[in-house]
Design a protein around this nucleic acid. Structure first.
Lengths: 209, 209
DNA sequence: ACTACGATCAAACAAGCGTTTGATTCATCC
DNA sequence: GGATGAATCAAACGCTTGTTTGATCGTAGT
């Protein structure tokens, strides 16, 4: 029996993603995962080899798509609005937003990303840096083109601040609780608009002290 | 024998703080903690009752001092530079910075804070909100006074972005790696200056869309 | 019909977990 | 100097962890 619409592998990835978002990587046991996925405990090691590799695959499934979207939007922004900062920021922020709104558990993934930063899991960080570091570098270049006064070091600092604000806000960590009258989609969209405005001003701030 | 300069309790708190920063709460075992603290495994439950309560106490030890510093600097800023935004932001950022520089492991604590947000541990979040929520509210009021055009909702969004950027940057999560020629203190100070500048511009950004 | 093979299963593995126990040490007070 | 009680200790508690095993199922190929 079992769900024929999604493969065992996919159900494990989905269950893992949700649980990792809720309880973190080390806070989630494989038995919780396999129980939610309605799958035998041995299936994880059969399909993924180890828990650690399962974590990587949870990332790969979403990040590949998100990175591709980001880079596509970045190219479009550079082509259609050369030297405009906000479209570049939108290209960075909106795929994360879209992912968060996506049914099929994308919302959980945003929180998983936030966890990844906190975990300081060297193995995972190396994996992410190896696989997706070029995306960040492309954005850094594009932003540097829009704000020429920004030195390299200052640019990196401000990109860090943007990343922190994005993860933090998208993961619902802060003060902001979604008003009852607002759909989650509208709430996320509001967040993206506010963040782009905030970050745009921050990136353009004076560079001299 | 054992270290007479610090009590068993203090050594447990210090070891726990460092390990929580490195491996997270559920990723750190009490045996790791007691082994690093050079203390018997039973000491944790004797002095703190449970692992969960140990987590709370790790926070209380630092947060009480940091909150007091923040509020004192905030009062001074309001008194000496009324309606100036950057001193208010400095009052928020610099105690975190000072804590991070402090020998006696304060640097680890900043990373522990970042973890706390990611963990979404409801018990811990309630503890933090109950104990230290008023500090954030005071800063919200002060910032609102400096940037009157900001609506309440926008203010909260931007405060969330600030908190995210602060935690993220202070915890060394991002791209920025400290240059070898710079002391850690100088590096942190640079971070604080950059962040204040970035956030100040972001908070003052246009409020209309 | 038989084989071959990937997928799934219950069961067990050793290791590690948070916590508890009961004895022991050691300074303090009468 | 004997009693008191907090602090520390080795050892064990029952339970969960990630992983492995070997049997079994179901489907494809010949």
């Amino acid at each position: 029996m079992s769900n024929t619409q999604f493969s065992t592998k996919d159900r494990i990835l989905g269950a893992a993603e949700e649980l990792f978002a809720q309880h973190g990587f080390s806070g989630t046991s494989l038995r919780q995962v396999t129980s939610r996925a309605d799958v035998n405990i041995a299936a994880v090691n059969y399909h993924f080899g180890s828990k650690e590799n399962l974590v990587n695959e949870v990332f790969r499934r979403r990040m590949d798509e998100m990175s591709a979207q980001r880079l596509a939007l970045l190219e479009a922004a550079k082509r259609e609005h050369p030297c405009a900062l906000e479209p570049v920021l939108a290209a960075f922020v909106e795929p994360a937003l879209a992912m968060a709104q996506d049914r099929h558990g994308g919302g959980a993934f945003i929180r998983v990303i936030a966890r990844a930063y906190a975990e300081k899991n060297d193995n995972l960080r190396k994996f992410l840096s190896d696989q997706y570091g070029h995306v960040l570098r492309d954005f850094a270049k594009a932003i540097a083109g829009c704000v020429p006064a920004l030195g390299k070091e200052q640019l990196y600092w401000r990109l860090d601040f943007l990343s922190g604000a994005l993860t933090y806000a998208m993961a619902d960590f802060g003060l902001i609780k979604r008003p009852a009258g607002l759909t989650e989609a509208a709430h996320r969209e509001r967040a993206a608009r506010e963040l782009i405005r905030f970050a745009s001003a921050g990136l353009k701030a004076d560079t001299k002290f």
